[in-house]
Design a protein around this nucleic acid. Structure first.
Lengths: 225, 225
DNA sequence: TGTACATCAGTGAACGCGCGTTCACTGATGTAC
DNA sequence: TGTACATCAGTGAACGCGCGTTCACTGATGTAC
């Protein structure tokens, strides 16, 4: 048994320095970052075990308990970060079009959603993974806000961007939809199905992403019907 | 340590009789049935471990190796059964309409798909689970048959029913689609997104299934555009 | 200024568990001679 | 008809692994007096 050399598989053991006094909470950020790295590398949130995260960032496994009560809590924190990245991507996409082009603005936002999911398949797939949502407890009903808008716990801002985008089309007489929430939901689920199946079955002869997005937005959004 | 009483958690240990000579292959069926029971109970194909299946049907774990090389092979066999149930459900749905009602026939088939998924969420969720598809090896390209139809390894008959249904609408001048395969794909992914998100987020204020199905089929299929 | 003490930010060893997999085996049933 | 043998359909014990979780601990840093 060779004991002196460091194992190359445990790449980060000892690479981390103890946080100075009063900065202990910074480890929580590192834990989430480690979890994201594992999700990225394995493509699955199942691989985010306490021990794997500890290995990833070079700490002992029990140290995690000071910051997270259990495994799902780590994944939930990682998901919150991913939802924030997604929202930022959609906002950046929509910002490429001015308020005088509501249809193109909506399409650009949806294309940004699609592109984010295709470029970050591992990150995206965790967001609405049944596995994860069963671990966390998302069976309780979503409360409803003004205008019949559902108040989601996660992804609320992203869904609001979609609702706002479609509503802007209605106000500019570009959409004939009678139920913005229902039609936005239809656009969302269609895009989700497209990206998740595309990721799961990369060998299938998929249409171009742009074709999908435009078709979903225009057909399901009641635009140039 | 109490050793005499049978543990109530291992409900089926010893409940199974050895197959008669020449009927050893029948255990393979029981293994798949056990796997389906576990999928149904846990909602996940991850829970289908060799030991869990063995426990379920009352055999020793190593007995499985005579019939399946590894864990994913069991799940794949279970998935083949589920795809067959799905195809039968779609066929039954489409059979309620005659060939003179191609649009309603297509809608009925898609409603059957939707209903199957909502009534059997655990079974359905395994079919296109990224987890499972990563375990199996579905990254290789799907070959293309006549008319640009993809030749899927699983679910081919179900997808063919959708293609046939939409093509019948085109032939009856009910659909203006220019690309049957692409539009059928759009309908499929939209329905998949709807059922999988509905299952994952039961608390969301979802529209009625019938509304979703009709909207997807008519809008994305180029019917009464 | 010195020193005892409290707190913080973690660690290392150990536990019991379920897992995939291997190995040699068992006992019933058929078959060749 | 008897009997040795081959085959079939499994079993039971054991292995090493990674996991969540617990427990008592360590060592540096700040603080009260």
């Amino acid at each position: 048994v060779i004991a002196s050399s460091e194992s190359p598989t445990k790449h980060k053991i000892g690479s981390r320095h103890r946080n100075p006094r009063g900065h202990g909470a910074e480890l929580a950020d590192d834990i989430v970052t480690g979890a994201l790295a594992i999700i990225e590398r394995t493509g699955s949130s199942e691989a985010v075990t306490l021990r794997a995260v500890a290995r990833e960032i070079g700490i002992a496994a029990p140290s995690i308990y000071a910051h997270f009560p259990d495994r799902p809590a780590i994944v939930t924190a990682a998901v919150a970060r991913i939802f924030d990245e997604l929202r930022a991507a959609i906002e950046a996409g929509m910002a490429t079009r001015g308020p005088t082009q509501p249809v193109e603005c909506l399409v650009a936002g949806c294309e940004a959603y699609f592109t984010f999911a295709l470029r970050n398949p591992a990150r995206y797939s965790v967001l609405f993974s049944e596995q994860r949502l069963a671990d966390a407890d998302y069976c309780r009903p979503v409360s409803i806000g003004t205008g019949g808008r559902p108040l989601l716990e996660f992804g609320a801002e992203s869904f609001a961007l979609l609702l706002d985008g479609l509503e802007a089309c209605v106000k500019a007489d570009k959409s004939t939809t009678k139920d913005v929430v229902a039609d936005a939901t239809a656009i969302w689920v269609a895009m989700h199905g497209a990206v998740s199946l595309r990721t799961a079955l990369p060998g299938f002869p998929w249409p171009e992403p742009e074709w999908f997005v435009r078709r979903f937005v225009l057909s399901l959004g009641g635009i140039e019907g």
